[in-house]
Design a protein around this nucleic acid. Structure first.
Lengths: 194, 194
DNA sequence: CCAGAACCGGACCAGCGACTCCGTTTAGAC
DNA sequence: GTCTAAACGGAGTCGCTGGTCCGGTTCTGG
């Protein structure tokens, strides 16, 4: 299924591909998915032709960007989940995902995608994250440290919400922290507090 | 300042204007701001020419829709704020705004607009909401029923987040309720619980 | 160092969507 | 009923953006 790189790809080609991916990530996250492909090509220092040779479609490029992002998040989340206490682990993941996803609505969409169907390339990393969260949620609830009535989809929705809130809050660390505190405290069952 | 209607506007014109506004509200909220103007015209049962005569620009139409929405919200919020207990009043407003804003990202933007600058027509209703929330927040904090460290911008960001979360959660009442519960509980100070 | 394949860049093409223009229709004053 | 200005509709214009093509350039095996 990953027959993408039959032959090793010439040195310059690989370089350009990387530059494109970086530029696209940057531009998409800062200015939204609406930016014309030409801008991305320019930001990467290549021509549009090159862009479209590497990614047959704008959507394909976006997808590639999202896959990379999701993989990074999945990795980070897996590490954060190492915490022994499930609730703490869950909160760490929550923080990380909400923070990482910063950028533009493009990414809220990507996260939303974690809940519904998407192109196959997104499946793997998104289900990884999903499964991780499902596990942590379940364990934390079992331990009585997270509200028992919460379901996974609801948690994901809250994640999307957290992302939106943070995005709207801007870069001020205090504000971001307050917002996350509200969210995370709310996840605790009525009797508990951190 | 409202010199929009110098002359009374012919009966059919008024009717068409209303139909357009309704159709636009419907279409924008269900399918996003991206829909072509022609669709809106068709949904309203008029030609594009008519649309553009009433609203010189697509953006102007969107603005008109948002103003109406904001006014409705402001009214509802004012009523909800009648509750004697400030925290309860604040929560009622929070619920109402988060729910009302349902639709598409267009409206999250509108809400975001409540925080920053926008076209002048949006100023009035958005500041009304803002001021109302500011007052409730302040009073609730004074009464010790809402976390004291929260600022108004943070509250607004949370509102945007709540909106996004609800939008992602879909129509299931249970899920929506769980999400709002998490949010609202999180607003309480560490010692209190509803 | 050379040949030729792989790759590059950007002029070009096509589709779409916001907005305009004008011949036709209609409200409503007398 | 009639007459005029207001309003209508939708075909057409124009700019913008995703995607293609091909002549020129650069890598790499021998």
């Amino acid at each position: 299924m990953s027959g993408t790189q039959d032959r090793p790809l010439r040195a310059d080609a690989a370089r350009n591909r990387a530059k494109l991916l970086d530029a696209a990530t940057e531009v998409f996250t800062t200015r939204g998915v609406g930016v014309p492909t030409e801008e991305i090509a320019r930001a990467a220092g290549v021509g549009v032709g090159t862009l479209f040779r590497h990614f047959p479609t704008k959507e394909a490029l976006l997808e590639a960007v999202m896959v990379r992002r999701l993989e990074i998040i999945a990795t980070g989340a897996a590490r954060a989940a190492a915490d022994s206490e499930p609730a703490e682990a869950l909160f760490a993941c929550f923080r990380l995902i909400a923070e990482q996803s910063v950028g533009k609505t493009a990414f809220a969409e990507a996260l939303a995608a974690a809940g519904v169907d998407v192109h196959t390339s997104l499946r793997a990393p998104s289900t990884a994250i999903r499964d991780l969260l499902a596990d942590l949620l379940h364990r934390a609830q079992h331990a009585g440290t997270v509200r028992p009535e919460l379901t996974l989809p609801e948690l994901l929705a809250l994640l999307v919400g957290a992302n939106a809130a943070l995005e709207h809050a801007g870069p001020t660390p205090t504000a971001r922290d307050h917002i996350l505190t509200v969210l995370l405290t709310g996840l605790r069952p009525p009797e508990q507090r951190a």
